[in-house]
C-alpha cells in the first residue's frame, strides 16, 4: 500500500509547496550555522533537479527514497526547517517543533558549529499539519524562541481577544498582558504628560510612566516603545500614528536645539 504525500517545506510561519531536489538528493542548505561535519541524508530520489510536489515515500536501511507520483494526496511530506538565528538576528525568534505521535520522523540533518544553527527534519504528517504549525509561529522581533506542537483544534488562535501588540510585547504571556492592561487602566489621567507619551523617546516614556504609576516594574520587561501605542490609544485616546507628520520628532527637536535645521 503506497500513500501519496503532498510535499511541503515549512520554515517558521511560511509553508511552501514542494521540496527542492538537487543532484538526486533533498539538499540541506541552512541559512545559518556551519556544515563542516557530515550533515545527514534527508532523502534521495531519481527525480531531476527542481521541486517535488507529490510523491510516494519508501524507507530502506540507508534512508528515505522519494518517488514522484501524481494522485490525490492522503498525507503531507513536510521538510521542517527548524532554526536558531545567528548573532546578526538574535532578537528574532528561533523556530522549533515538538513532534508528536501524529507524525513520523523520517530523517534529519543538522549544522555543527558557527553562529546560529539549523536542524531540518523530514516528516510524514496528516493533511493540514504544516499549516497548523506555521499559523502558531509568531515571527516578531523580541518575541522569543518558540517550540511549537500540533494543535488541531487551535490553529492560529493565540491572543484570546487580547491586543496583538501587547501580546507580542509580553512574548505571548497572557497573564502578564492582562496585568499590564490593568496597570494602564489604573493610571492617574491627571498626572500623565501626553507630550512625553506621544513624542518622547523610550527612556523618558519609561521614566515618566514608572514615576506616575509609582511602579518601578510598570513595564514588566516589555519594551516601552512597543506598548506606548496601546497606552496612547486607551488612556489618552490619541493614536501615536495620528501625530506622525504633524509634529516635530524627538530627533528633529534635538537637532533644532543644537542649532541645526534639518529643513535646510
Amino acid at each position: 500500500m503506497k500513500t501519496t504525500h503532498i510535499a511541503l517545506t515549512l520554515r517558521g510561519n511560511s509553508v511552501e509547496n514542494g521540496i527542492a531536489v538537487n543532484d538526486g538528493q533533498v539538499p540541506f542548505n541552512p541559512h545559518s550555522g556551519m556544515t563542516r561535519h557530515n550533515t545527514g541524508l534527508l532523502a534521495s530520489t531519481s527525480a531531476p533537479d527542481g521541486n517535488l510536489n507529490k510523491v510516494h515515500v519508501a524507507i530502506v536501511d540507508e534512508g528515505v527514497v522519494l518517488v514522484p507520483y501524481e494522485g490525490e494526496p492522503q498525507k503531507e511530506l513536510v521538510l521542517v526547517q527548524q532554526y536558531s538565528n545567528g548573532s546578526g538576528a538574535k532578537r528574532w525568534p528561533s523556530f522549533h517543533v515538538e513532534f508528536g505521535s501524529e507524525v513520523r520522523q523520517l530523517s534529519d540533518a543538522s549544522t555543527s558549529g558557527g553562529s546560529g544553527g539549523e536542524t531540518w527534519v523530514l516528516v510524514s504528517a496528516p493533511i493540514g499539519w504544516a499549516e497548523n504549525i506555521a499559523s502558531q509561529f509568531v515571527d516578531e522581533r523580541d518575541y522569543g524562541g518558540q517550540i511549537i506542537s500540533y494543535k488541531p483544534d487551535n490553529a492560529g488562535e493565540k491572543e484570546n481577544g487580547l491586543p496583538r501588540e501587547l501580546f507580542i510585547a509580553f512574548r505571548g504571556d497572557e497573564e502578564l498582558t492582562r496585568q499590564f492592561m490593568a496597570k494602564v487602566a489604573g493610571l492617574p489621567l491627571d498626572r500623565l504628560d501626553d507630550h512625553i507619551i506621544l513624542q518622547c523617546g523610550r527612556a523618558r516614556v519609561k521614566a515618566h510612566l514608572e514615576e506616575v504609576s509609582r511602579d518601578p516594574d510598570f513595564f514588566m520587561g516589555a519594551d516601552p516603545n512597543r506598548v506606548v501605542g496601546y497606552i496612547a490609544d486607551t488612556v489618552l485616546g490619541t493614536p501615536v500614528s495620528s501625530l506622525e507628520g504633524e509634529t516635530e520628532t524627538a530627533m528633529a527637536r534635538a537637532f533644532r536645539k543644537a542649532g541645526l535645521d534639518l529643513a535646510n
Binding site: 557530515n38 545527514g40 519508501a58 530502506v60 536501511d61 540507508e62
Partner: peptide, 22 residues
C-alpha cells in the same frame, strides 16, 4: 560522502523492490 553513498545505495535498493512504502 556518506550522504552520497547512502543516497545511491537507498535508490538501488528501492529500484530492486526493497524497502517499506509509507
Amino acid at each position: 560522502s556518506p550522504e552520497e553513498r547512502k543516497a545511491r545505495l537507498a535508490l538501488q535498493k528501492v529500484e530492486q523492490g526493497g524497502g517499506e512504502w509509507l
